[in-house]
Design a protein around this nucleic acid. Sequence first.
RNA 1: GUCUCCAUCGUCUAGCGGUUAGGACACCGGGUUUUCAUCCCGGCAACAGGGGUUCGACUCCCCUUGGAGAUGCCA
Length: 489
Amino acid sequence: MSVRVRFAPSPTGSMHVGNVRTALFDVLLARSLGGSFVLRVEDTDRNRYDPQSLEDIYGSLRWLGLTWDEGPDIGGPHAPYVQSERLERYQVAAERLLSGGHAYRCYCSSQRLAQLRESGHVGYDRHCRDLSEEQRRSGEASGSGSVVRLRVPEEGSVGFEDGILGTVERAAADITADPVLLKSDGFPTYHLAAIVDDAEMEISHVLRSQEWVPSTPIHLLVQEALDLPRPAYLHLPPVNGPDGRKLGKRHGATAVAEFRERGYLPEAMVNHLALVGWSPGDDRELFSFDELAAAFSLEGINKAPGIFDHGKLDWFNGQHLRRLDDAALAQRVRPYLAEAGVDVGGALDAAAALIRERLTVLVDAPQWLSFLGQDPRLSAAELTPKRLDAAATAQLLRAAQPLLEPVWAGADAADDAVDASLRQLADDHAAKFGDLMMALRMAATGSKVSPPLFGTMRVLGAEATRRRIARAIDTLTAAANANGGATSD
RNA sequence: GUCUCCAUCGUCUAGCGGUUAGGACACCGGGUUUUCAUCCCGGCAACAGGGGUUCGACUCCCCUUGGAGAUGCCA
């Protein structure tokens, strides 16, 4: 039997890291076993349906490189892949269950159900389970519609072998009492739709969140009643928020789209996500997508819930950022620079290379290159290293100026020589090399923190750099004269 | 309330009866360095508790505790 896995999101909200982790495991399983990955949209809840959510789902999956072999947009042998377009199938299935005595029509009003709840009763009281012909007729006659409920046996138990949890057994009495399979609006609930579709789409492995374990017996009952094959069930451990609770609205940044905007690489997201709930069994941490597909196996999946740790994601992002070559990094960084209005001219690749080691997320890129903006306006005090005074600093800068020229000659070929000549210069003036560099850094970038200076100067350009240093010399000289040569502090 | 699942450093995890309980992130030191960062080295830090089983339990069983989930005409 061929391996076929499906990811079946419902378009009712944005895709969060937990959902996408499931999708990732789906893809990894399919890829590692040479199977197919099916995307199916479960839009059977008309009230919560959100068209924007669908875009978010597609966008998030694509961004992460989790591409499907069959799905709503590309079709496939079992199209359509949108449940709202498959209603007849569920209705037919419901009819079969009805005629086979495995399900029954329920005429209870939502008011009655609400009352039941308020009175403290948990679950459905099976009020319509064994209606007389007469009661049934009056129910139909009332015209207020009906739902189809599964007739869950009252005795015995239902069990299955979960691929991750092992044997799961549940007493019939503990199974949700007669869940609704077909709603009064003619749409199926998950319990019917997913089972029918999984069978029809020949799904071999169902990977889904552990929250589904309690309702799996329902699914088995439906399957059995419909005489459908049973796929392997693998219930994945949940991915919880930092507080250890189920991911939800209160957890801030959990939407995949948000991570994307903040400049996390899809490679890093995938890498980190894969390691929450799965382990290769050895000490490896850094993986490319292909490496994951190669290493992935069901045995490595964990049972215990995990927390999506943002700190580790940062680390992964840095690692993957550093794996990008100049051109690739430049492309990733470009939109963020444009957004922030930082103009690097034709030096995008060089600029990217300059900040690679300093980036955690792409949104940080603009501030590392902010020296490209206006010429800094600095006071003599700001320009003067602690161990020097204005006069000495001016003198150093003046002497350093010509020595910097080779920096612009080409790539970084001359940097070592420039470095050596500047060290010599500092030495000659009985100054610290670090102080000289800091004075140059302040003059050229207006900041005590910058990427490596020579590269920074190259990206800034010869003209701007010379201008800024000249200006700094002027400022320092003026201050030195005013002070009559005294300390400029 | 009832049912289900889960339980190793703060976090992600390795371990599948005999280990100084390993790695990674974070954190704290130190080193390299032109600032920042990277990088390198070192340190801190865990088997929830109690019973069994066994010559021997982190590993197997039970209970307790803790956490999570389910209990919808949501998925």
